[in-house]
């Protein structure tokens, strides 16, 4: 199934969707969004590409392997729980750090965000893993 319209759309949509998924991931803490939805979007971007160009070509264009991405996600999620242990709190307690305090660029970052990144990778990886293996059939 080769559709020029789909292929051109997919080629341009993929980077846009990836950026959008990152936005959704980041804003998830205060507004609708988050790692789970972001991960699904990220995966959907590549699935769209795979529908247009085939799984093989998509996999070649990837610089990572979906299995590794899933594993990385789990790893990041677990690691995000460790800073709490170092401070003396229970595993997975959210720890927050403020950067550029009292300035216009005040930025609050915490371990829950890292955890969300882990969820993002794991969900994206598992989605791509399942979809690619089924679509390859």
């Amino acid at each position: 199934m080769e559709s020029i319209i789909l292929q051109i759309a997919a080629r341009h949509m993929r980077p846009l969707l990836v950026v959008l998924s990152l936005v959704v991931l980041y804003r998830g803490h205060n507004e609708p969004g988050g790692g789970f939805i972001g991960g699904l979007m990220f995966g959907a971007a590549y699935i769209l590409y795979a529908m247009a160009f085939g799984v093989n070509k998509t996999q070649k264009s990837l610089f990572f392997n979906p299995i590794n991405l899933t594993a990385l996600g789990l790893l990041v999620a677990i690691i995000s729980g460790i800073p709490a242990l170092l401070v003396g709190d229970n595993f997975m307690t959210g720890e927050w750090y403020t950067f550029f305090a009292q300035t216009a660029f005040e930025l609050k970052l915490g371990t829950p965000l890292i955890f969300d990144v882990g969820v993002y990778f794991a969900v994206a990886g598992m989605l791509m893993l399942v979809m690619f293996s089924i679509m390859e059939e």
Binding site: H29, E31, G33, F115
Partner: peptide, 10 residues
């Protein structure tokens, strides 16, 4: 976090 759903999840 203002997004309660997300805060609960993460």
């Amino acid at each position: 976090g203002r997004n309660i759903v997300n805060v609960i999840l993460v």
